[in-house]
Amino acid sequence: MIASHEDKETAMSHTARTPPLSAALEAFTDTHQEHDASAAEGAAAHSVPSDELDLTLMKKKKKKAVKIDDGEAAGDDEAPAGEDAIDLSMKKKKKKKVVKDDDDFAKKLEALNIEGKDGEEAAPAADENVQDGDMEKGTGIWQHDETKAINYEPLLSRFFTLLSQKNPDHASTGTRSYKIPPPQCLREGNKKTIFANLPEICKRMKRSEEHVTAYLFAELGTSGSTDGARRLVIKGRFQQKQIENVLRTYIIEYVTCKTCRSPNTELSKGENRLYFITCNSCGSRRSVQAIKTGFSAQVGKRRKMKTG
């Protein structure tokens, strides 16, 4: 379904728009946005469960159905289509822009109408750059033995389609959300919580279990142990949401790179007992504070024993 969607887009971007520079630019951004959208869609399709925590957007992102235009991919349809296919991973700022684009586009359409029908009709004929064809199937301009130089625009869209297909990680740097499976919390008895999938989460974050447990205990102000199946047993009642919040802060503090915001980092012990985070994608290195358990009050029986 994704592939077909993309086909449509590329086809749309190829429909000859008499290219004054601004229009061409706009078409470029349109296609670009749509590619983003499709990339995001693809990512969403790959990582199935929607209840995974989404870390770049702290709030739950709005699910916006990407409408696929059927039938006429005429120039008129292009702008609304661009609006419909708002990138899922994009933030609110973007939406306003798209709306503005729409306005601009409307103005241009008006201008075109004023110019007259003949101008519109003459344009595609005069435009020898009509480049049609299906990229996937290798027809039209994309034929193997085609000698005509391909325009910048379709080449660019081809680049982004290929990139999003073959290398989805690169296609959306920054906007891609970092996802870890939600923590599974069980209650053991009345006073203990079992955090079942800690090893899995640690593996995902590339951090040692000890480090994460130490952080959890320090933040929650409790203690605990690991049981036979490597699950973490935390003293006290905790809900999944609460653990999730702590994990979030952990990721912000100890996983993401502050320079490029990539979660692809490594934690290592530096020279003099300091911990350093080395980013694998930008190479930056920063020191992080060691986990400190602050003051914790004595609660329960032992306090009585002490006073009495």
């Binding site: 102000g221 409790t222 009642r237």
Partner: peptide
């Protein structure tokens, strides 16, 4: 300044 929370019974 650290503000912490601790669970009691």
């Amino acid at each position: 300044i650290h503000i912490r929370i601790q669970q009691r019974n």
